[in-house]
């Protein structure tokens, strides 16, 4: 739907390179993401998918190339980094909730500390978000008392509490039991329908086919192929893409 509004490029990655020691994890990765677009990144493990989206909010530092998020260039400048992080939510494979805080405290901490929001207001927002992800009754529990699916939904609510313009998902369902995957994917799909810009690293091909505007296939640290879901699942061009899809489908 958003392909038409070409000027609204919210994430611009140009020739991004990243090395871990001698190993080159990202090789000249370039990608432009439109506002409100949902981009799913797939590829075999070790292909650099996670590293790529972790560079976008500077959990990893890229060593060459340019990343511009919502018009802010990602450089060593701490102010730029903090501004980009406060506009970018991230959901991790292992949830990474704060185990010593209740669900409600997990969600309200950043709005109160970073956005200087009033406590009452932050709590109200948080309850609204918990309703949205379907677990308002868990507000006063600790993360350790919730199931994996519930924890991941709290993690999504925690990111949304900062009203981000972009959401990054790093294999959000890979650590979940099969019966809990759907509840998390449903929340993500609902989020995509509200027009959130999303970058999702996942192995859930059903989700990719149904929700993605575009699919990115990565292998060996390179972006091999980018295209719509129809293109990918019916008419993939690259040999390695075909091989990967044949293994996973």
């Amino acid at each position: 739907m958003s392909e038409n509004t070409a000027a609204d490029e919210i994430i611009i990655c140009q020739d991004v390179c990243k090395w871990f020691g001698d190993f080159q994890a990202l090789k000249n990765c370039s990608l432009r993401v439109q506002a409100q677009e949902v981009v799913v990144i797939i590829g075999p493990s070790g292909s650099g998918k996670s590293t790529f989206i972790r560079c976008i909010n500077r959990l990893e530092e890229h060593q060459a190339g340019d990343i511009i998020v919502d018009g802010i260039p990602l450089t060593r400048d701490v102010r730029n980094i903090e501004q980009i992080r406060s506009e970018t939510g991230m959901v991790f494979q292992q949830f990474n909730l704060f185990p010593h805080l209740t669900v409600l405290e997990n969600i309200t901490l950043a709005p109160i500390q970073v956005r200087k929001m009033k406590k009452d207001e932050a709590m109200e927002t948080a309850m609204g978000l918990l309703n949205r992800v379907g677990i308002p009754e868990q507000a006063d529990k600790y993360p350790g008392q919730l199931s994996g699916g519930q924890q991941q939904r709290v993690a999504i609510a925690r990111s949304l509490a900062m009203s981000p313009k972009i959401m990054l998902f790093d294999e959000p369902t890979s650590a979940l039991d099969p019966e809990m995957i759907k509840e998390v994917l449903d929340v993500m799909q609902e989020l995509a329908e509200t027009g959130m810009t999303m970058l999702v690293v996942t192995h859930e091909m059903g989700f990719a086919r149904e929700v993605a505007d575009r699919i990115v296939f990565m292998d060996g640290g390179e972006i091999m192929e980018v295209g719509t879901p129809e293109h990918f699942f019916t008419n993939a061009q690259h040999e390695r893409t075909k091989l990967f899809l044949s293994q996973i489908l």
Partner: peptide, 24 residues
């Protein structure tokens, strides 16, 4: 992951030390 989650929600180093790292 705790440091990363704290960074990802926008907490500064000082804020994440006080609210996330030290209490645990």
């Amino acid at each position: 992951g705790q440091y990363e989650a704290a960074q990802a929600v926008g907490l500064s180093t000082y804020q994440s030390t006080i609210h996330i790292i030290l209490p645990q």
